[in-house]
Write a protein that binds this DNA or RNA. Structure first.
Length: 469
RNA sequence: GUCCUGUUCGUCUAGUGGCCUAGGACACCGGCCUUUCACGCCGGUAACACGGGUUCGAUUCCCGUACGGGACGCCA
């Protein structure tokens, strides 16, 4: 039987980093074993599910390159399937109607809590003899009162739960809609899911779902519960707690391959390798190699991995994202792709994110870099810098082809003429050309900037110096 | 509170009874390279939660304690 897994987010908000990791693990594990990766949208909560959230989740998955092999399927399309399953269970005696009010239930739980018991439904409607009729009611599952439920979790190992710990969960709400546990079991069966891979926070739902499978006479799938992702405070990452949308990472200049690489390394390792391509992950990743404890998200390491992927990328691959980020910085029009591809190699080793890269190469695409960075100007734009800069301008005006060797020659001639060391000319020049004291190599910087802009900024700098000193 | 579950450097991890005076990576600190900033290279600080067993020998196995996390909805 071929492996079939599913990623089943509920569309009640953005796709956060924890959800993305679950999707990634499903995808990688499935690919590794030649299976099928299914996407199912769990929108049985009509109150909170929105089409916008569905769109955002799909976009997040698309950006990460985690498109499903099948789906997306929507649970809201299967309502009749769930109702039929519930009806059958009532007929066969494994489920029953219950008309206890929410107030009754609240009070019940409150009392139990006071007595130090686990809050749970006490099953008072289980054996009722009077028919409910048209009264609003829910359908509850008749949980086996004794015995234990055990499964061999592919990540956690053997998990054994005493059935006495479980209460009679609701299958169908009073408005006729199915609840999570029913919908999941029915869909996992009908979609032929063989491995349910999800977060550890679902462990307690597993025995309930296994019971439903058994009541319906279906084969129970395998389960694997992966450790959760925690925030810096050590608590579970969730939409209400610290987790941001994966699309936010795109805005901040992270590459999808880097994010996948980092997420995969959280809880999993392969020898002493840190950097992985998607293909490598798909050939080596296996949930059997996952650790069992939660991991804390570390932005620093993500930055390092991102920088690595930026450096390893072929320039043309980065062009669209650099263009987008420059646009966000107000560069209009955005430079031509060929131009960006040409300058990219100089900036790849100098940026941990695409946002940082856009900021660092911005000086190439503006009309003027004034005002200069204050600290840089104070340190390097002294009165002594004026004459050498003007001298360099004269030498540069004689350069016809603007090739790096020619620029270098003009630069060396100026150095000799004024008896200066490299840094004494390079630093003031850098400030005048880029506005800051840090940039790619000075010859490369002149070359990238072009003859016209270089000379213009040289004179602009000379003017600044004359006014200041 | 009850049930489930976890615990190796600050963080991610290697480690499945002797190869561990515990390895790698990020971060941090030094140094080298260098026209600046990066990249790269070299080096350093830093961890087996605690207590009992089992064993010739425990980071590794068992029990307990502590601390952490998850679950306990007509949410998923």
């Amino acid at each position: 039987m071929t492996l079939r897994t599913r990623f089943a987010p509920s569309p009640t908000g953005f796709l956060h980093i924890g959800g993305a990791r679950t999707a990634l693990f499903c995808r990688l594990h499935t690919r590794r074993h030649g299976g099928v990766f299914v996407l199912r949208i769990e929108d049985t909560d009509q109150e909170r599910s929105t089409p916008e959230a569905v769109e955002v989740i799909l976009e997040g998955l698309r950006w990460l390159g985690l498109d499903p092999d099948e789906g997306p399927f929507f649970q809201s399309d299967n309502t009749e399937l769930y109702r039929a399953a519930a009806r059958r269970m009532v007929e066969e005696g494994s489920a029953y109607p219950c008309d206890c009010s929410r107030e009754t239930l609240d009070e019940m739980r409150e009392q139990q809590r006071l007595r130090g018991e686990k809050p749970r439904y006490d099953g008072r409607c289980r054996n009722r003899t009077t028919p409910i009729g048209d009264q609003p009611h829910v359908i509850r599952f008749k949980t086996p009162p004794a015995g234990e439920t055990v499964w061999e979790d592919k990540i956690q190992g053997t998990i054994l739960i005493d059935n006495a710990e479980l209460d009679d969960l609701i299958l169908i709400r009073s408005d006729g809609s199915p609840t999570y546990n029913l919908a999941v079991a029915v869909d996992d069966h009908h979609m032929g899911i063989t491995l349910v891979l999800r977060g550890e926070d679902h462990v307690s739902n597993t025995p309930r779902q296994i019971h439903i499978f058994r009541a319906l006479g279906w084969e129970v799938p395998e389960y694997a519960h992966m450790p959760l992702l925690h925030g810096a405070d050590g608590a579970k990452l969730s939409k209400r707690h610290g987790a941001v949308s994966v699309l936010q990472y795109r805005e901040e200049g992270f590459l999808p391959t880097a994010l996948n690489n980092y997420l995969a390394r959280l809880g999993w390792s392969h020898g002493e390798q840190e950097i992985f391509t998607m293909v490598e992950l798909e050939t080596w990743f296996d949930i059997g190699d996952l650790g069992r404890s939660a991991a804390i998200f570390d932005q620093n390491k993500l930055l390092w991995i991102n920088g690595h992927h930026i450096r390893a990328a072929a320039p043309p691959q980065l062009v669209p994202e650099l263009a987008r980020q420059l646009g966000r910085l107000g560069i209009d029009p955005v430079p031509a792709p060929e131009r960006l591809a040409a300058i990219l190699p100089e900036f790849q080793p100098r940026a941990a994110t695409m946002v940082e890269m856009a900021q660092k190469c911005r000086f190439l695409f503006v009309d003027s870099v004034l005002p200069y960075e204050e600290k840089a100007a104070r340190k390097h734009l002294t009165a002594a810098a004026l004459d050498p800069l003007l001298g360099l301008a004269r030498h540069l005006e004689g350069v016809a082809d603007w090739s790096p060797p020619s620029i270098e020659a003009a630069f060396q001639q100026t150095l000799q003429a004024f008896g200066l060391a490299m840094g004494q000319l390079a630093q003031p020049l850098r400030v005048v050309l880029t506005g800051s004291a840090a940039s790619p190599g000075i010859i490369e910087t002149l070359h990238m900037l072009g003859r016209e802009q270089t000379l213009r900024r040289l004179h602009e700098g000379a003017e600044y110096l004359q006014q200041r000193h």
